[in-house]
Design a protein around this nucleic acid. Structure first.
Lengths: 182, 182
DNA sequence: TTGCTTACTTACTAGTTAGTAAGTACATTT
DNA sequence: AAATGTACTTACTAACTAGTAAGTAAGCAA
């Protein structure tokens, strides 16, 4: 793997562990046994690196969901939930949960990338819920956006509260989502 | 109001706007037209100030919920949801949403305070849901913890996504909660 | 009126951190 | 063989940031 993508992966993990402002170039340099300036060679500013991380996550989401394209919508929804379980298992939070709370203190390029990412994920979930309803596997009366937002917010914050509480909140919310909303 | 509590209130707002690491003592000093060292006089370390903010929020939560003590549980649950609407109206996020994601990079004193706070809020919501069910105003089959966690995670992250998306996600999730969970 | 406490200011430091300029070693192209 | 490009290192700076030591002014207490 190239140094550039190793930096992205490592910085991604650090940001999702400690947040954007608590992660520093020296963390990367030390662990990869390169110099500070080498990180700047690949990503001139910290905002460039941050935006690259968001873009990588957007790509991964697009790739993953496109791969499920032919599956029944209900299965796709379950796969979506599994993405969060897998993040939780690694004791991480999602990039939106890590960066969203401090969005106002982030470089503009990251703010825009984050905004786009939130649209993409919400749109996918909304339309997949609508498909599931059309396929007869999920039933709801309220607008799909409302149910989509309920599900995604719950998953996002479950990862956060997992770490704060030390308990498996995600298991609780996942059960409740499957019981009441899917 | 004393300088000390003015500092707490201002720092609270700054943390909930930009996060713990993006807020600095100079922000406080400048806005209150005092010197940096005056802030250190009241709060020797940044962690002391952070912990004071969490404790203030815990007090406010306790005071608010105790005041509703005699009301029907269903009304108390609606009041709880209203607390988040009011935070959203101010374009802020809750302290748990601001501090939770970066808990691992926070001073120990803040980590403990945050952990306690999450217990207190989750316990209140769980037992209020149980009371509501006993009073016959809410119906659910899964354990109360699961439903409580679904509701609280959704409200917490709605405030975060409100700012990321620029849309009123909290309105959507609140509708969906009232439709499906209360 | 002397001493003590509170709430600061002045003046400073040590450590951190993003970012840069210039140079080097090696590989690829022309 | 010469020129160019890639991926760094060395060496540095400017700005920031939490925290401290010492001093001061005002009020209160004995």
């Amino acid at each position: 793997m190239s140094t550039k993508s190793t930096i992205i992966n490592l910085a991604d993990r650090l940001i999702r562990q400690n947040g954007y402002h608590a992660f520093i170039y020296a963390d990367i340099a030390t662990r990869l046994k390169i110099k500070n300036a080498a990180v700047h060679y690949h990503f001139p500013t910290k905002g460039d690196l941050g935006a690259a991380i968001i873009d990588k996550s957007r790509d991964q989401f697009r790739t993953a969901t496109e791969a499920w394209n032919e599956l029944p919508a209900k299965i796709q929804l379950e796969n979506f939930i599994s993405m969060y379980s897998s993040i939780g298992t690694q004791h991480l939070i999602c990039f939106m949960g890590a960066l969203g709370p401090s969005i106002d203190s982030l470089p503009t390029v990251m703010q825009k990338a984050l905004n786009t990412a939130s649209s993409e994920i919400r749109s996918w979930l909304q339309s997949t819920l609508e498909t599931a309803q059309a396929e007869g596997s999920v039933y709801f009366k309220e607008p799909a956006t409302e149910r989509a937002d309920l599900i995604i917010t719950s998953l996002l914050a479950s990862l956060i509260l997992n770490r704060v509480s030390g308990e498996d909140i995600l298991k609780n919310t996942t059960n409740s989502i499957k019981h009441n909303l899917l």
